[in-house]
Amino acid sequence: MKRIRRTKVQGSAASYHCMTRVVNGERLLGDREKEVLRKMIWQVADFCGVQVLTYCVMSNHFHVLLRVPERQNVDDAELLRRYQVLYPKPTQHQTASVKVLRSQLAEDSEQADELRRKLLARMGDISEYMKAVKQRFSVWYNRNHNRYGTLWADRFKSVLVEGKGNALQTMAAYIDLNPVRAGLAEDPKDYRFCGYAEAVSGVSEAVEGLRCIWADHDSNPLRAHRLLIFGKGSAASLKGGAVIERDEALRVLEQEDGLLPKAAILRCRVRYFTDGAILGSSEFVRSYTKAWQMERQRRHPPKVNRLKGAEWGDLAVIRGLRKTVFS
């Protein structure tokens, strides 16, 4: 499988929205499968040293918003703790027990250094994180359903998100509103397979994710996030409910050349949040145009494209969408 290139953020933490689909879009994930995948999302994040800000598991795909910290040195004690999180006992894929690994790392040898290097290479990287989640879940799913072969579509999509303020908050709300868009819940707090629902129920890691998302805005992150999700009631006035239909959104935006409340448009499937490549303020996006151009060996630098259709503030993306912003 071809490795997907990622725009790197040097010298600072970076936030990414990652999304991947089940092969052929099949709806294979019931409540049991979603629960297992939910646990793996958190488990692998602990091993990789990345922070899950929020996530949502659906029947044929999942989203996760990750904060990847600056690459730091991890001492042997932390390396062993993380290893035990992912491999509490030997398996056919990882035969070394924690006791054996501790003994190997204690040796002052080239073999020990190589072992550290291999483990550290799997940490602090979104590609390695998504690879581990997808592989571990595929093994579990196929074993429990007498199934063989690929479970996930080959590639996952990722968007580099400005790590604070409007961009991060809007992306998080878009992810948490997935069950509302799918008609599975009127309120995402009632859908247990998303980060917002876990935060409402008091799960510490999920609450900390919301605190990170709203760090520069509000002392009560749950309240701030809920106000964005429901738009202080503005979305409820559209179509008599919380969800605005795609055709209605297109009519307002394209035929009437109007704007919709942000909370209402977030209830549509907006391609900016999965296909925009880089999402943030115009200044943030502009700062990565050269790196993006060099990575993809483009002759001309990309344009900074302001988001359309709602009062997005200063949000922009690096990849202009030739077709409608809705999918």
Rank of each mutant, 00 (worst) to 15 (best):
S237D: 13
W140H: 12
E205A: 15
D314E: 14
Y288L: 00
R181T: 13
Q104L: 15
L321F: 01
L160Q: 04
H225L: 06
S237T: 15
V203N: 11
R246C: 07
R117L: 07
K308P: 10
A197W: 06
H300R: 13
L177N: 13
V9F: 01
K8F: 07
L80G: 00
M294H: 06
M123K: 09
R298V: 02
W214K: 08
R271C: 00
R71T: 11
A167S: 11
G165M: 10
A199M: 12
Y83A: 02
A242D: 03
T91C: 01
Y141A: 04
V44K: 07
R223K: 12
L177W: 07
L119F: 12
R322W: 03
A206G: 13
R223T: 09
E110D: 05
E35C: 01
S237Y: 09
F193W: 15
E33D: 07
R246F: 01
A77K: 12
E248N: 09
G183D: 14
H61G: 13
E205W: 13
N144I: 02
D247L: 13
N24A: 05
L29K: 01
E254P: 03
L53C: 04
S103V: 08
N24V: 11
H93M: 08
E295L: 15
P88Q: 03
R319W: 03
V36L: 13
D31E: 15
V98A: 15
G313E: 08
A167V: 13
L227R: 10
R116I: 10
R5Y: 04
A77P: 02
N178M: 12
S59Y: 10
E311S: 14
S219L: 07
H145S: 12
E186V: 04
L119H: 15
E256S: 02
R155Y: 03
M1S: 11
L168D: 05
